[in-house]
Write a protein that binds this DNA or RNA. Structure first.
Lengths: 347, 347
DNA sequence: TCTAATATTTTACGCGTGTTAAGAATGGGA
DNA sequence: TCCCATTCTTAACACGCGTAAAATATTAGA
């Protein structure tokens, strides 16, 4: 059960009786050696413990076979789902994924970008923190490696970087239309932090409301919510409103489902969805993203989908295309996926 | 804005006018060089783009400064929270974290274990898949690197590996006691997959029920739920029961909160929590873990906490202790954290 | 059996940095 | 000014494997 451990390819080659370069080729592609030799090597590997040194294999090579993924944080099922889907796609193309978490800290994000350069990642898929991101570090990364933004994108210096995400104009338009034709026009609850999604969604809401002849109403941000989870932020904010009897007959469209989940909790606390013997108010909530748990809250959340799977696959595909051909002359691609309505019980 | 790019330490040294070994020492510890030289180097680095090659730095070194984390999947806020907390702890100790996702696939888990050896990780924190895990690959890892299990542990060959997690005996006892004294004794809903937590919690439930003089009742597993999310699995299973009028007056204790969230949805669908003009049934649900969203479902979920933060910190600390001193003679540690009741509205 | 094609081995160098030892330079204090 | 302790430079080797070119062995085909 305790197989002898071989630490270098050199020793392994003398052990098996095959030259080291042959072993090297075997590990890169077993079919590149004669079948009889392959059998000999594979047999020997059964009786011995050997793992090629990861760093040494990447040293003197043009391609590292690594794809980097940088996300602003992990405590969000959208990002964890995105990573899983990227990993699956990348694995299918024989790439290994290295994930770095920014922890919402621009300094860590910059460090992550440096790590990607240092590890010779063939390309990087990045969901940036937002307007706090380090322009310097990311510009550096951009000009050293093929790169693709997902979920949210950066302005100004990054217009030449591909983007894969949701068409907020379309998705917000869809849900605003629905809410307006099925009841009162909605107010809008934005995220506490700033990124392109938040801005785009708020703008999409405002312009769509104007088009429909309604006056938009954006609920003022709370100033001290940066550190809270979205649910908690929305819960506290709305609980304060409801406690004063404000917004209790409103329809509220949230910039994402996690906010909506917090709003629903606050609404339940104030019995806005009705209780036995009391008339239900006209309160409604809708979200955006189709967060995995949105179907499980009560009332289940009406929202628009965000196709994580498709975004991840498209991002990986687009990045691999960049990696394979060297020409970066073409214009930046902006690939957005249309959302679909998920009508449930909250609106 | 476009700084010249230096690709090797060699060129950087001739650029600055400092020898390469001095630079090498500077990058490992800036205080190890004279203040005047440090200033010179730091100044030069402002005007130049240079990032040390990650692989080369790790090549000829005893310690890689890397800590590996292997999780069975990412689509779970418990694991994503665990990873974030481990990253924070490790960062504070100047370690970099490499995360590998098993995707619930024993082959991928085995590959992840090999990768940790290949990358010379100083130690590995592992949340195993469960009884499907590859004994071979993990034994190999265990005897090559310091290792710590979190969340769930493996049996038989891994009794000598430290474990950090929740004391299921205590936590399940706590919630069973509460449920029994506040209403009907609970039935138990287990997870569809097999790991030590699942087994321990079921056993803890059974034995505690016996101690209290009640007959335990474990709801039979559904056979085809391995691929579903916990929520969906529980929802479908319980929806089937409720549709036939079964278990509608029960109290159900779930092996984890995600199951409970699915149960709550099914119960809502069948109005088991009461509706206007109808008597509420005596249906109750409780969970285990205090999943981040458990407070936001309706009715909010009564559960017992699992201290992710503490588990992560203890695991990192324990691993670092192993890494620092070489003696592995001592007995394996089993560090479990007590749970606390979180009484909310579902039971 | 012989030749050509293919596969493998030998040999040698390269990747970028860690690390060591010996000698040279520097700085501070007496 | 001189001496000693630091700090630095120089030179060299190490890490484990990729890679290329030339030499050699093997195999297939006639």
């Amino acid at each position: 059960m305790q197989k002898p451990k071989i630490r270098t390819m050199e020793k392994l080659s003398s052990e098996i009786g095959v030259s080291r370069p042959t072993l090297s080729r075997f590990f890169q592609d077993p079919t590149s050696v004669r079948t009889s030799t392959r059998a000999r090597i594979e047999n020997a590997l059964q009786t011995v413990d050997y793992v090629p040194n990861f760093f040494a294999t990447k040293m003197n090579r043009k391609s590292s076979g690594l794809i980097g993924v940088i996300v602003p944080h992990l405590n969000d099922l959208f990002f964890s789902g995105l990573i899983e889907a990227i990993e699956t796609s990348a694995l299918a193309a024989d790439y290994m994924v290295i994930t770095q978490n920014s922890h919402n800290d621009p300094a860590l994000e910059a460090q992550a970008a440096r790590n990607m350069i240092a590890m010779g990642a063939d390309g990087v898929i990045m969901a940036p923190i937002g307007d706090a991101s380090s322009i310097d570090a990311l510009s550096r990364l951009k000009q050293e490696r093929p790169m693709v933004f997902v979920d949210s994108r950066l302005q100004d210096h990054f217009q030449d970087v591909d983007f894969i995400g949701t068409d907020n104009q379309q998705s917000i338009g869809l849900i605003v239309d629905y809410l307006c034709r099925s009841g009162e026009p909605p107010a809008f609850l934005a995220m506490p932090n700033l990124n392109s999604n938040n801005l785009e969604r708020e703008q999409a809401y405002t312009s769509r409301m104007h088009e429909l002849g309604h006056e938009p109403m954006v609920i003022p941000r709370s100033t001290n919510g940066e550190t809270l989870g979205f649910e908690e932020y929305a819960y506290r904010l709305m609980d304060a409103y409801f406690s004063h009897g404000n917004l209790v007959d409103q329809t509220i469209l949230c910039a994402n489902d996690r906010l909506a989940i917090g709003v629903i909790r606050a609404a339940n606390r104030h019995s806005l969805f009705g209780t036995a013997g009391k008339d239900p108010s006209r309160f409604r909530v809708a979200g955006h993203d189709d967060y995995p748990l949105s179907a499980f809250v009560f009332p289940s959340l009406t929202t628009v989908t965000q196709n994580t799977q498709a975004i991840a696959e498209a991002a990986t595909g687009q990045l691999l295309r960049h990696i394979r051909r060297e020409d970066r002359i073409e214009d930046a691609v902006s690939l957005t996926f249309d959302a679909e309505l998920r009508l449930r019980d909250s609106a």
